[in-house]
C-alpha cells in the first residue's frame, strides 16, 4: 500500500515548533516544582492556587507525577514538531504527532476536570500547558488531515 505525505505550510512548522518549546518550558518548571515545592512562585489564595493543584492526589496518574508525563510529552512533541521531522517522508511519524496531540488534549481535559470539579483551584502554569496543547491541536487538525490525504486539500499557504 502506498501512502502519500504532502508538505505543510511553513507557518505550521514554525508555530508547532515554537509551541512545543513553550510547552517544554512550562513542563520543566512544573517538574522542578513538583520535587521542590518551595520553588513554586504562584498565588495561593482564592481560585488561583498552584501549590494546591500540584500537590493534589490528581497530580499523580497511575503513580507517575503528571508533571513528568507532561515533560515526556513535550520532549517527544519537540522532536516530532522539529523542522526535520516535518520534512520526513515517514507517514506514521506524522500520524504519531497527530495522535499524541489528540491524546494530550484528552489528558488536558481530564486535568481541567480535576482542577474545576475535584480540586476547586486553578494552576496558572498548568493552564499555560493546557493552552499550548490546545493551540497545537488546532494547528495540527488544520494541516495534518490535508498533509496525510485524509481530506480535501485547502489553500494553506
Amino acid at each position: 500500500m502506498s501512502r502519500t505525505v504532502e508538505s505543510v505550510p511553513r507557518w505550521a512548522v514554525v508555530t508547532t515548533f515554537v509551541l512545543s518549546i513553550i510547552g517544554l518550558g512550562f513542563s520543566i518548571y512544573l517538574t522542578i516544582t513538583h520535587f521542590q515545592p518551595h520553588a513554586l512562585v504562584c498565588a495561593d489564595t482564592g481560585t488561583i492556587n498552584c501549590a494546591k493543584v500540584t500537590t493534589s492526589a490528581q497530580s499523580y496518574f497511575l503513580g507517575i507525577p503528571v508533571a513528568i508525563l507532561g515533560l515526556f510529552n513535550f520532549v517527544v512533541l519537540l522532536g516530532l514538531n522539529s523542522p526535520w521531522a516535518w520534512r520526513a517522508k515517514n507517514y506514521w511519524l506524522h500520524v504519531a504527532r497527530f495522535a499524541l496531540s489528540v491524546v494530550g488534549m484528552g489528558f488536558v481535559l481530564w486535568l481541567i476536570y480535576a482542577e474545576i470539579m475535584i480540586i476547586g483551584n486553578i494552576c496558572l502554569y498548568c493552564t499555560g500547558v493546557h493552552i499550548v496543547t490546545f493551540a497545537l491541536l488546532i494547528v495540527l487538525t488544520r494541516v495534518t488531515p490535508t498533509q496525510l490525504g485524509w481530506v480535501a486539500s485547502a489553500p494553506l499557504e
Binding site: M1, S2, R3, T4, V5, E6, S7, V8, P9, R87, K89, N90, Y91, W92, V102, M105, L137, I138, T141, R142, T144, P145, T146, G149, W150, V151, A152, S153, A154, P155, L156, E157
Partner: peptide
C-alpha cells in the same frame, strides 16, 4: 510499513470529500 512519498505541493487531490478545516472545527467545538 507503508511506502511514503512526499510532494512539494500543499494542494492535492481531495480524498473523502471532507473540507480541510472540519477536524479543526470538531476539535475546537
Amino acid at each position: 510499513m507503508a511506502n511514503a512519498t512526499a510532494s512539494k505541493k500543499a494542494q492535492t487531490p481531495a480524498k473523502g470529500g471532507r473540507p480541510a478545516g472540519l477536524f479543526t472545527w470538531i476539535a475546537v467545538g
